[in-house]
């Protein structure tokens, strides 16, 4: 039962990743692209956790925690670059 649900969830998040990729390519504005990247990071975190359940290891928690950190910092720095024209002043 869990295996079926796991497959379903992985399929959902993978499809979500494709949809966000579509938005990333389509744009049409900077804010849409940043938003698409942010959502991609969140989908990728979910996929990593699901992979951890699938393989039965706990090594992916560190990976997903780091992914969450890097994703947040990159979203904020991209926005800051657009707002101020510079990241570190």
């Amino acid at each position: 039962m869990i295996a079926a649900a796991l497959t379903f969830a992985i399929a959902c998040f993978s499809l979500g990743l494709v949809l966000t990729l579509w938005r990333l390519i389509k744009g049409p504005r900077h804010s849409d692209r940043i938003l698409a990247l942010d959502t991609m990071v969140i989908n990728a975190i979910a996929l990593l956790i699901l992979l951890g359940i699938w393989l039965g290891t706990s090594i992916f928690f560190e990976v997903s925690l780091l992914f969450a950190l890097v994703g947040f910092v990159s979203t904020v720095s991209y926005c800051r670059f657009l707002l101020r024209g510079d990241i570190i002043e």
Binding site: M1, I2, A5, F8, F13, T20, W22, R23, T39
Partner: peptide, 24 residues
Amino acid sequence: AEITVTGFLVISGVFGLVGSYGLL
């Protein structure tokens, strides 16, 4: 535990997909 895990996985899959679909 099996029931809970299955339920949470299905619900979260649906919500995750709806979030990405909404973005599009």
